[in-house]
């Protein structure tokens, strides 16, 4: 759901950005017994995490001794944020479905038997890295470079302002209606899911009423159904939609939006395309820098240090 946090977890673990990650929503917990694992990383909402009982941080690469089994425990998320990601170095060997390692819970495909993980599941590891990363002290792991505060700010905010571009039916809404939309706070409702986040707040209507022949939509498309309550299409959205398309969340803010929980309030700010492109490029530059930092072994961050 949060494309930025999942890519960051993968990158920190030394995997490609689209590598396999474990995704945890809100209060769900995970305890994973790991064997032969060279490292791992966590990103996203944040939650208390321990490795064999030692607390370990989010937003860092944690190198582990592959000869030593360990248990990583992630407790439920407290505070802000909705989605947390765990990546294991080398990834996991699950069969791709239509080119993706993701799990489609609604259809029951992908991942592990197309369903949520449950106690007793075994997930085989992917290919191990070519080199061993050195010796470990008694704790059996060490923490490497942490992400800059700037990157971290991309995926969480107490009062999120989500930037949008005009959607394909923007002009079908009266300018007074658009102003209401931009001036209002919207609450994410409890019936939001992976397909769409539903918003409660000022109702929005096009004038005159629009009949749409189903047309393509994207992750971040803000649609207005007849009741006027906006729906933002999320990661599991259908390829086409039949409601007026008011606006489009810019790519750089999809993570920020995804991390909003039911009950959280968001506001929207209209930007132009150059601003959206600039935000996308800032994210990409930050992501690329992160890679350089980690490649320069140990010199890449502010989290260098042994844990003992």
């Amino acid at each position: 759901m949060d494309p930025h946090a999942s890519a960051l977890a993968s990158r920190l673990a030394g995997n490609p950005p689209e590598g396999v990650v474990f995704e945890l929503e809100g209060p769900s917990r995970l305890a994973l017994r790991c064997e032969g694992v060279f490292g791992l990383a966590l990103a996203g909402a944040g939650a208390p995490v321990s490795l064999d009982g030692f607390p370990v941080p989010f937003w860092a690469r944690i190198e582990t001794d592959p000869l030593r089994p360990f248990v990583i425990r992630i407790e439920g998320t407290r505070g802000s944020g909705r989605w947390s990601y765990l990546a294991l170095t080398g990834g996991c060997r699950v069969a791709p479905v239509m080119g993706s390692f993701g799990t489609d819970l609604r259809a029951g495909w992908g991942g592990v038997e197309g369903r949520r993980l449950r106690a007793g599941d075994r997930v085989p590891l992917g290919a191990a890295p070519a080199r061993l990363t050195g010796c470990f002290d008694r704790a059996g792991f060490r923490i490497r470079g942490q992400v800059s505060p700037w990157l971290r700010s991309l995926v969480g905010s107490a009062e999120p302002v989500v930037r949008i571009l005009p959607g394909s039916h923007w002009e079908a809404f009266p300018s007074s209606t658009r102003e209401v939309f931009l001036a209002s706070r919207y609450r994410i409702t409890t019936d939001s899911d992976r397909m769409g986040y539903r918003l409660a707040g000022a109702a929005i209507h096009p004038e005159p009423v629009l009949e749409i022949d189903s047309e393509p939509v994207a992750f971040g498309s803000i649609q207005i159904p007849p009741d006027g309550a906006p729906i933002i299409l999320m990661a599991d959205h259908p390829p086409q939609g039949g409601y007026p398309h008011l606006a489009e969340v810019i790519g750089a803010d999809l993570g920020l939006l995804a991390q909003c929980r039911a009950g959280d309030e968001v506001r929207f700010r209209l930007v132009d395309e150059p601003a959206a492109l600039q935000a996308l490029r800032e994210w990409r530059r930050g992501f690329a820098r992160l890679g350089i930092g980690l490649a320069a072994d140990g010199g890449g961050g502010n989290g260098e240090g042994r844990h003992a």
Binding site: E273, L277, L280
Partner: peptide
């Protein structure tokens, strides 16, 4: 010919679906 976010482009034809 309208943008669909900064990474997308939507083309629309005026006639009825056929």
């Amino acid at each position: 010919c309208v943008p669909l976010g900064e990474c997308g482009l939507l083309l629309r034809w005026p006639q009825e679906p056929a």
